[in-house]
């Protein structure tokens, strides 16, 4: 069984985000990059399948040199090989889906796993687009996955409940929190990963479906207001403010 895991590099949640001078991209200075947590569930699931029934796991990322760290980490965790598609999706999920589809289409993957969305961008679009481009089945926001002989059964989160879908492999499955508990890399894995090489290829030339025209931080929160007077006066002022200004009543 061959599994491809698509991993995205995203800014750490603790990073203080700054908009670059062009007004439509992130300022990469001082950004600490991590693997998108949803992709970590995808990778963990692939490794568990490998440990359970045996599989060959390939990790893939689209990006520049810094995306290599994500792949190194995947190798340390147990991926057998890693591919870096050198290219820039410019924040467009369709562009990235086309790059990955162009690479994966003739490789005979039985299963493609990725996060249900990339942390930060929150498009939740790349996985479904990839499945459509490859013409294979898909199940998204998956919290439980079982594989049969050439089939899959996935439990997915839907609004207010859960849904179980079954289908034939190959398929694209996008992972949701709850699918598993990702492990930490062992020292042995980290050392072994250093001996493995990351294959670097130029990503296919694609046409973006959408372009980012502007990126802005939320407006700064106005300063709080201190109510004056004794308790009844403060309660009165608060009630007034909730009615007239916040309009909650």
């Amino acid at each position: 069984m061959k599994i491809l895991v698509a991993l995205k590099q995203v800014p750490d949640t603790e990073t203080k985000i700054k908009v670059a001078a062009d007004g439509k991209s992130l300022d990469p200075a001082d950004v600490k990059w991590i693997t998108s947590p949803y992709d970590e569930y995808a990778l963990e699931e692939a490794i568990r399948i490998k440990e359970g029934k045996g599989a060959e796991v390939m990790a893939l990322s689209v990006g520049g040199d810094t995306a290599k760290d994500v792949l190194k980490n995947a190798l340390a965790l147990g991926a057998d090989s890693a591919v870096l598609l050198k290219g820039d999706g410019q924040g467009d999920a369709f562009a990235v889906a086309q790059m990955i589809a162009a690479y994966a289409k003739d490789k005979g993957f039985d299963l493609i796993l990725c996060g249900n969305k990339g942390l930060g961008g929150d498009n939740a679009a790349m996985g479904p687009m990839l499945a459509e481009l490859l013409g294979v089945a898909q199940a998204n926001v998956v919290v439980k996955l079982e594989l049969g002989e050439g089939t899959f059964k996935a439990e997915r989160e839907i609004e207010g409940g859960s849904e179980v879908v079954e289908g034939a492999l190959p398929a694209v499955i996008t992972a949701q929190k709850g699918l598993n508990e990702p492990r930490y890399a062992s020292l042995k894995g980290i050392m072994a990963a250093k001996k493995k090489t990351i294959e670097e290829l130029d990503a296919a030339a694609v046409t973006a479906g959408a372009q980012v025209s502007a990126l802005a931080l939320p407006p700064e929160r106005p300063a709080g207001r201190l109510l004056q007077g004794d308790a009844p006066a403060q309660a009165q002022a608060l009630l007034q403010a909730l009615k007239d200004e916040a309009k909650v009543f």
């Binding site: 930490y184 890399a185 980290i190 250093k194």
Partner: peptide, 9 residues
């Protein structure tokens, strides 16, 4: 690189 990798892990 090994020492840095171990420390970071």
């Amino acid at each position: 690189d090994d020492q840095t990798a171990v420390r970071d892990a």
